[in-house]
Design a protein around this nucleic acid. Sequence first.
DNA 1: TTAGTATATGTAGGA
DNA 2: CATATACTAA
Length: 686
Amino acid sequence: MHIAVQHPPSIPLQILAGPGSGKTKVLTARIANLISEHNIPPYAICAVTFTNKAASEMRERLTKLIGKAQTSQIKMGTFHALCATFLRRYPRLVGVEGNFTVCDADESKKIVKKLLEKYKQFLVERDISLKEATVLSMISKAKAKGRSAIDLQEEHLNRDNRSSITAEIDRVVAEIYGEYERILRRNNSLDFDDLLVFGVKLFSGHRKVGLWCQHVLVDEFQDTNTVQYELMKCIAAANKCVTIVGDPDQSIYGWRSAEIENLERMQKDFPTTQQIFLEQNYRSTASILAASMAIVSQDNTRVPKTLRTSCPTGPTPVLQSFPYDNNEAAFIAAEIKRLVAVTGGMLGWGDFVILLRFNALSRSIESALQKEGIPNRVLAGHKFFDRLEVKDILAYLQFVDNPHFAPAFSRAINVPGRSIGEKASETLESGYIPDLLSAAQRLQISPFEVVQRIYDGKTPDIKPPVKRKLASFLPPLRELRKLAQSGMQPPDLIRRFLDLIDYKSHLMKTQPDWESRWDNVQELINYASEVEITASSQQRDYDDVSDGEDTPLRLFLQASMLSTDTETQGDDGKEKVTIATCHAAKGLEWPVVMIPAVEKGTFPSSRAEDIHEERRLLYVACTRAQGLLYLSYSTARMVSGEVKRKEPSDFLLPLHGQVRCGLQPNAFWRHVHFTLRTCSAIRHRI
DNA sequence: TTAGTATATGTAGGA
DNA sequence: CATATACTAA
């Protein structure tokens, strides 16, 4: 471990670290070492993680090691957040405005959906079904490979395809891709993939942007895609000092265009690269590791790797089958209760996690836990920011910051209801007002400008008269814009917004459960004040001239769009059983892990393209466990309102002999008690 | 043209 | 079981 920490900074390093081998610790120790032993200033270090959670954990640990002053200078964050920060600083260099809005997946979907309508008839005639989700993911994949709409279109022309269905789809997608891009640019907006694509443009096209950088460290390298890899390369261009940490066995984001080949690519691009293997596991018992290895070893395309553990053998992992998903859920709830009781309070609710292949499986589990009175929380992606009331507020604020961002406009214009429907708002949005505006002007005018002109009487009203209705929209917006530009803090801005449009009565009128929604509004204000604090604690560390000035509002909006931290809500300090997807569990650990629904069609998912990736996902899930691991499946399950028969997953086959099936004998419980005492996470507490 | 209600449909994974 | 679409009344 110390070899990896002290490895010379100028020799590119690949740390291949199995689960539980303490890679975060190595990474943070290495950063501390770079600063103290090699005199690399903290602002010259760039540490990239995959999730915000990993970034904040790293920040926490580093603060303990080297103090807050130095830690706050390190450029730390996700690829997306890092790009966003630098794009805000030098927007003009890549042809965007500093107040660009990050377009989230929902809004992208709506744009694509609208574009797809034009092709509907064409597709129906040819009996082709093309969903917006498919189009969106094809566009996303193209972007992740750094390929533009024009690239796709040219490629299509160069192929000698007659009119096969896939060729038609490719053509339509390439066209929609192009239009989608034009719409985003017109809206002064970047989607998630754009952040990376434009980040590469910025760093590769303008050396001065990355001159500060002396060392780049990338966590979870196995999950980087082509564009992210390019990004790493061009940020590191000045000094070629790179450290990456990764584990091919834990690559679970191929569907998001992650490319495991980046490991080899790096060895070619940085010829002096050296590898260090961390194979000592400090997390799981030997029997959990054995079962996990049995699962992942089934993949014969895998590079063999071993894992050792210093932990005791521990209780054998449990594999159970149930007739129906209800029984499975009830068992899980009962077993959690039993474990808490039998260990005499050594285990608390917070020590349990239930890992699912996808979120929809949580329903029966949640209700079973509720029935038993077990407090629980669902660790799920955006959720909070998906709430209607949160989206309403964000839409207003996005539009305040960026008057070209049409998606925010079309949401805000009719909240509260102003009887401005689809037709009217589309007219306003596009700036296409038939009689008055010349064709040239059309595209340059923002929805805000259109609304303003109508309200001020500079343009005749459009067909269903909207001028009067705008009285409750435009004046508040004008005031908010003025306040935002003068640098008002987001919490105050939100409060002012609530006052100006009387959002509370709107909620009361339209939502039966307005009280809990109003709580969410308050929670958003809390979140805003937290962002304010972290933003102000990040000082500007180099005095390069930039062309962007960020308002507090802008920083808040960006943080909201890029955050998936569910910790912002409900951290009332109470211990709760966690329910999460296997993907979301990456990098985390719990004393007891339960994985239900390990069935064909779920594990691997029937939609999965890469069965090996699905197996690795189960491996990742299993290796989250410190002391106890439960796998289970049901022979019948409610799927989309229908009862379906289910069979155990093939991934379970190699577990013969590694797991205990059926009920636990008393010896098992004594064993549990004994082992958990030695489990590091629990030992600390006793 | 819009708002509101009735009916049909279909379900990953995340920044 | 929640969301999208279809339909009707204003």
